[in-house]
Amino acid sequence: MSFIGEIIEITIRSVTISLSATILSSLWSIPLSLIIARSRSRMTKALMGVLNSLIGFPTVLVGLFLYIIFSSSGPLGGLGILYTPFAIMIGEALLITPLLISLSYEIFSKAYYEYWETSITLGATPAQAFMKLITERFEDIIVVLLIGFSRAIGELGVALMVGGNIRGFTRVFTTTIALEVSKGNFDIALFLGFILLIIVSTTSAIIRIMGGRKSD
């Protein structure tokens, strides 16, 4: 495959994997953050403290932890997902979970929590109240997801450890950059870094525009 073809392929793969990871993570992170926001228990504060400190957890340790689990001799070895895009997806989804929970908790714990209470008292089922809350804070949630996406696409540790940087299969931006640096191909690495920068900065531009928007 040509050089440009390979870079396009890596771009598509990186974005797809990280986007899927973000969506996957949101499936549990957002409901969890709502549960935490609703809880009146003192444990909640302690839990949020732990989660906040996990945001900066070294990605390579998350990768190592998942490697041990997904390895053929590990507890989930039978699934055979080590060194597949799924593994990266799951790894990144877990990696950004503390970040997503922490950021969505900020959204839910403030005045916005009233939307939940209002829906419930107006007769909504928990599911209906959840939908209402998501609808009301939709822009904020998208912003949170985009931040999660930026983190996912820019991380190296997980992608390398459980993805294996396999050409044409699990090779993503960050692993390619690392490889090209070790090959001494600094120009290619810089070029890839530039594309990554464009993707991440476009994402954050969207975040800024949406974050600056006053909801009606």
Binding site: L27, F138, R213
Partner: peptide, 25 residues
């Protein structure tokens, strides 16, 4: 962005899950 209502959010949710499963399969 368009004003959101629950129906649109449901579509967005369903769409993203379908997308996820599509990619996975």
């Amino acid at each position: 962005m368009m004003p959101m209502n629950e129906r649109k959010v449901k579509y967005a949710l369903a769409l993203s899950i379908i997308l996820l499963m599509g990619i996975a399969s």
